[in-house]
Amino acid sequence: MSLKFFPSVSPSAIALGTAFTHGTNLLLSAPLFGSLYDRSKTIDTPEEFIKSKEAAGALAVWGSSLIGSAAKTYAVAALLQSTGTITQKGAIYLGTLLFAISTVPGAFVNVFAEKRPLDYILAKVVSELLDTVGLAAVLNWWGTRPDIV
């Protein structure tokens, strides 16, 4: 497979989108980082803190969120560019379609099969709305083509 089939995307758009998506993902991870902060206050030495399970968990969440954010940003930017989307309205439509195919089925499973709490489902839906519709709007506003930026 050749890389020429992948659309080129502006590095600044990838950086901005990664920061945006990573930030929205960390909103859901706030309880994890809160427990990490509480644990850090009770530990005497930095070495002991680094070896704690809270620190390892937080590092894993942070790292996977960063890598996933970059991949999602490139994918959305490539879709915007490949479809020729130039208006905010079009970007919002594209983001809504991405939301529908990626989040709606899981939300139905969470509501009807797993019977998760409503606040959990609402937090996931809002986060995914920001990750899809918000990301598409931000990337379209910024510009995804390397020749424009």
Results as ranks from 00 to 15, higher is better:
Glu47Thr: 10
Phe20His: 04
Ser35Glu: 13
Gly63Leu: 14
Asp119Gly: 03
Leu94Tyr: 03
Lys124Gly: 08
Trp141Thr: 15
Lys53Val: 11
Ser69Met: 03
Leu66Asn: 00
Ile50Met: 11
Ile92Arg: 10
Phe99Asp: 02
Thr73Tyr: 03
Thr21Glu: 14
Thr45His: 14
Leu135Asn: 07
Val104Tyr: 01
Leu130Thr: 05
Leu130His: 00
Ala113Met: 09
Lys72Leu: 15
Leu79Ile: 12
Glu128Ala: 15
Gly106Thr: 01
Gly23Met: 03
Gly63His: 01
Gly17Tyr: 02
Phe6Thr: 10
Pro7Ile: 05
Ala55Val: 09
Asn140Glu: 13
Gly134Ala: 06
Leu80Phe: 06
Gly106Lys: 06
Leu3Phe: 11
Thr96Asn: 00
Ala13Val: 06
Arg39Phe: 14
Trp62Ile: 08
Asp44Pro: 00
Asp131Ala: 11
Glu128Val: 08
Ala15Gly: 07
Pro146Gly: 12
Ser40Tyr: 05
Ser8Tyr: 00
Asp44Thr: 09
Thr85Lys: 11
Ala58Trp: 00
Phe33Tyr: 15
Tyr93Ala: 15
Gly57His: 01
Val126Arg: 06
Leu94Val: 09
Lys4Gln: 13
Phe108Val: 15
Ser69Ala: 15
Ala60Ile: 05
Ala100Gly: 12
Val76Glu: 06
Phe6Arg: 03
Ser102Trp: 04
Ser52Trp: 04
Ala13Met: 04
Thr83Pro: 02
Gly143Gln: 08
Ala77Asn: 07
Val125His: 05
Ser10Glu: 09
Gly90Ala: 12
Leu79Asp: 10
Gly23Leu: 08
Thr18Cys: 15
Lys41Trp: 07
Ser64Arg: 04
Pro11Val: 03
Val138Glu: 04
Pro146Ile: 08
Ile86Phe: 13
Gly17Thr: 02
Gly23Tyr: 04
Leu16Ser: 14
Thr87Pro: 05
Gly23Glu: 08
